[in-house]
């Protein structure tokens, strides 16, 4: 009896269906290659960051951020704290602006039909396709006081100066490049598509029926937006926000071009890490600061997974 049962089980539960599954060795090879690459390029560097940061113990690690008589770094730790604050401020400007832009763009792309829409969608992806350094240079080209069109025009120089007259002194003296506004602009530029990109597919899949239903039930535009549209896309929106935030805090290339590297003033965390690593501080200091960005990445990944799980759950329902 037992023999029959085991045979039945053996017959009805095929281990490998050769028609639809690759041979065992191919599967193992593919898995091994993937795991190998992930370990080599993602896991090991992450471990290395923490390893290097804590290599000399806890005191040098914390001395990176706070003055400690036991271990004095070659730079002012207050500058490291300032770079963290600057990064937070930049994210605090870039993320909300992208939130507004992302919602507006996703709405414009999914809810209306008009000519040139596909062109708009393509242009929206530009920051993904363009090198961040070029993105930074664009702003130099526009706003630089020595090279930029607008920057020079504001000083009464160059090709475009004759269109600009009677400008308020405060505007002329406003510093954009090598200052906070320039860093914010560059960051906004590189993070622009993140939220819209996440919202568009969700909004497209939802269609317009629920909003039309709200409309026939007498709800106005704002009410419909806040009680119907927004709750429907909330997880996609949250997902877009955390990705946008991670990029805003971690951006190096575009910011490096417009930053000017004024210590403690225009150095964001990634910029400051690079400065520390190249001799301004020690390796320990550089990696200690890098652990913050690594933690940000880990937190982002965890949140992303939670959101994806929630989205999958709400799709089932």
């Amino acid at each position: 009896m037992a023999a029959i049962l085991s045979r039945v089980r053996h017959d009805t539960v095929p281990t490998t269906n050769s028609a639809t599954t690759e041979p065992t060795w191919v599967r193992w090879l593919l898995i091994a290659v993937t795991v190998g690459f992930v370990t080599l390029f993602l896991v090991l560097p992450l471990i290395a960051i923490f390893f290097k940061a804590f290599e000399k113990g806890l005191i040098p690690y914390f001395a990176t951020f706070k003055h400690n008589p036991a271990y004095t770094p070659t730079y002012n730790p207050a500058d490291a704290v300032n770079s963290i604050l600057l990064t937070l401020k930049i994210a605090a400007v870039a993320v909300p602006l992208n939130l507004v832009f992302g919602l507006a763009a996703a709405w414009a792309i999914t809810k209306f039909q008009y000519k040139g829409k596909s062109l708009l969608v393509t242009i929206l992806d530009l920051p993904f396709a363009i090198s961040p350094v070029i993105a930074g240079l664009i702003f130099i080209l526009i706003f630089s006081r020595t090279h930029g069109w607008l920057g020079r025009a504001l000083k009464g120089e160059g090709l475009f100066s004759r269109w600009i007259q009677h400008i308020d002194e405060n505007i002329i003296s406003l510093k954009i490049i090598f200052a906070f506004p320039g860093i914010a602009l560059a960051t906004i530029f590189v993070t622009l598509p993140f939220i819209a990109r996440e919202l568009v597919p969700t909004m497209q899949a939802r269609g317009r029926d629920e909003e039309h239903a709200a409309l026939t039930l007498g709800a106005g535009g704002w009410r419909t937006f806040f009680t119907v549209t927004l709750p429907n896309v909330r997880w996609a929106l949250f997902y877009g926000i955390i990705l946008c935030n991670a990029r805003a805090m971690g951006e190096f290339g575009a910011v490096a071009v417009v930053s000017g590297n004024l210590r403690g003033q225009t150095t964001t965390v990634p910029i400051f890490i690079e400065m520390l690593y190249h001799g301004y501080g020690s390796d320990v200091n550089a990696f200690a600061l890098a652990t913050l960005l690594a933690l940000l990445a880990l937190v982002t990944l965890v949140l992303k997974n939670i959101v994806e799980w929630r989205v999958a759950k709400s799709r089932e329902a």
């Binding site: 029926d209 629920e210 039309h212 239903a213 709200a214 409309l215 026939t216 039930l217 007498g218 709800a219 106005g220 009680t227 119907v228 709750p231 429907n232 709400s314 329902a317």
Partner: peptide, 20 residues
């Protein structure tokens, strides 16, 4: 007259219930 002011009840093909 906009939809909300016509006094019309509309039932959609796929119900369009507010899922949340």
């Amino acid at each position: 007259v906009p939809a909300g002011k016509r006094g019309v009840g509309f039932v959609f093909q796929h119900y369009a219930l507010f899922k949340h």
